[in-house]
Design a protein around this nucleic acid. Structure first.
Lengths: 332, 332
DNA sequence: AAGGTTTCGGAGAGCGCTCTCCCATGTTTC
DNA sequence: GAAACATGGGAGAGCGCTCTCCGAAACCTT
């Protein structure tokens, strides 16, 4: 029996007589034969894997990434989509500059068929490096510099406007905001959207303190806010973790939430539901966005062949922007 | 110029005249040549990658894994060791039964050179499946059934004894414990060690409540404990998160820590330091253990060749057991 | 029954590397 | 100055698969 027949049976292409098929499977099971992935990839030019890249440099990188529920939600959203297509998801982390270089080299050499990139810093050079290396890439969050690459994003400004409008509608006239590092574009859009919505109602000056997306930084920010602007009656935080920190500090100081100060978060993560009081927050459908990200990449991967074979133009980078929704709970 | 020469330059084997070397590198840089990993792996029978496998089935898998600081610490410990050897770390997750099967198949086909496995459930079939598939494997935690495979572990019972002895030495005579699921062997050892140390001092009956390694479950467990055994004056929790939950509940009930009830945690994670009051806890050097795990695997991988070439006996599975240390802070 | 059509297995050419030979130099030794 | 030796480059054989071509056999059609 020839290698070709075995190959046909294993990959299920073309017709092979049922009895031959059975006998081949039989022998495979008996001998414990395992196809060699490298040899297969060499000819198919496919690995059957997709990389899920987490990029964020800094100390104790993993410990930080693993404590933010955001990444977990992204992974949860991506996994089912890839599993369904029998694509092996491999997670890669870029925790330092050399690691980033090694990672790009790995993907350039064909370590995976494509990359789904989650990066928090706006000035992260990784997306551009991957695109330059010819790696099919889809980002979580809009790329800067109109990089030719697919992405999914949330209309962050619209989300912040929802928060501002809700606070205004419930009679809050002295709102403040806990923003996040300027390097996170999503956070900046949230700040801008919030200010803009209030400016449209005649409120031009809004106290701003910056946090670092963590519960602790939220507490600290709230403390500063309360000290410098004791008159505030509402706070909009750029994510739920910081909103939770703010609530905690207010609670410690005996300030009623939402009685004296209303708090609105962002993301609608588990933290929002378990916080006390449960947070009013802007929902970001992270899992759905992540699933869409995987879908976009798969499309590009499938289309890629045809494109390259037919015309010489690379696939149009596709993208999808999601609309946020306000979830009213008890904190505002 | 021949392919062989180029190959020699790229891989740095044997001597190649400096000027030829330079000109080769020059052409590589100019043409943007990239070696094909699949072709290379096909002949070297190496991928240059090591899989870091996170195994734990259940709903919202990733969201759970990503909220436990433990995994982050493991990753942080492993990364530098692999980076130093220019080995690409790839993280794989086994979040369901089919995912597990797919993952084993992937590694069996040579998707990575070896696997570092972190699994929380004792009855996880993954380690045995990997060993059966011939994948070089090192576990975090002692394997059951004397599986022939390397591992690193902590002397959990000794750690629990440290906690018990500290509580005893500080005059606590009515201690209780918040244990973890029976399926986690490490947690069982902690429970056994705690009981044993107290039994040696004549205390045979210790109230036990089970938690699920989370802050919330710690709070709940503490509530039950306080209701059923209001006389207790100390609590030993099987990890810091649950200890933190216990402290939180005690605080809400106006019970002084450590005044009325002393609390001891386990792990010495970040949570122990940021908790209020800072937790007295048993230190598990997770990062060092994880680094050792990577080291063991690398040794096995390096030795593997020689072994398979010389004699036909597979490498002896190596292992390393770490000793815990008590870290006294304010909670006990 | 003869030709045409479909079905299905085999032969064999690569995929892009690495690595072992082997040979052409340059270098040393007596 | 010739033989022995070190040095560095080329030729070419695979690694284990997939996939296109081809031909043999089975099936229809008229």
């Amino acid at each position: 029996m020839s290698r070709a027949t075995v190959s046909r049976v294993v990959n299920g292409v073309r017709n092979v007589a049922p009895d031959i098929q059975r006998s081949v499977r039989d022998v495979i099971a008996r001998t414990g034969y395992t196809p060699n992935q490298a040899a297969r990839s060499l000819v198919t030019r496919r690995t059957g894997t997709v990389a899920l890249v987490l990029s964020a440099t800094g100390k104790a990188f993993a410990a930080r990434v693993f404590s933010d529920p955001f990444f977990g939600r992204v992974v949860d959203g991506i996994l089912p989509v890839l599993r369904e297509r029998a694509i092996q998801p491999v997670m890669l982390v870029a925790e330092s500059e050399p690691a980033r270089a090694q990672l790009v080299e790995y993907l350039r050499r064909g370590g995976a068929d494509g990359a789904l990139v989650v990066s928090l810093d706006e000035d992260d050079p990784l997306p551009a490096m991957l695109v330059a290396a010819g790696v099919p890439t889809v980002l979580f969050g809009r790329p800067r510099d109109s990089l030719r690459c697919g992405f999914v994003d949330l209309d962050n400004a619209a989300g912040a406007r929802l928060a501002a409008e809700h606070l205004w509608a419930t009679g809050r006239r002295r709102p403040a905001t806990i923003a996040a590092p300027v390097t996170a574009p999503a956070a900046r859009e949230r700040l801008d959207g919030f200010r803009e919505a209030l400016a449209a109602r005649g409120l031009t000056s809004v106290p701003v303190v910056r946090g670092r997306f963590t519960v602790e930084s939220g507490s600290l920010a709230m403390a500063r806010l309360l000290k410098d602007h004791p008159e505030i009656d509402a706070v909009f935080a750029a994510n739920d973790l910081m909103a939770q920190g703010a609530c905690r500090y207010l609670g410690e100081q005996g300030v009623a939430v939402p009685g004296s100060v209303a708090v609105v978060g962002f993301d609608d993560s588990v933290a929002a539901r378990t916080a006390r009081p449960p947070l009013t927050t802007v929902r970001q459908p992270v899992e759905r966005m992540a699933a869409a990200m995987a879908g976009l990449l798969i499309e590009e991967l499938d289309g890629g062949r045809a494109d390259r074979a037919a015309a010489r133009n690379p696939a149009e980078p596709a993208s999808k922007v999601f609309e946020p929704v306000l979830v009213v709970r008890e904190s505002a």
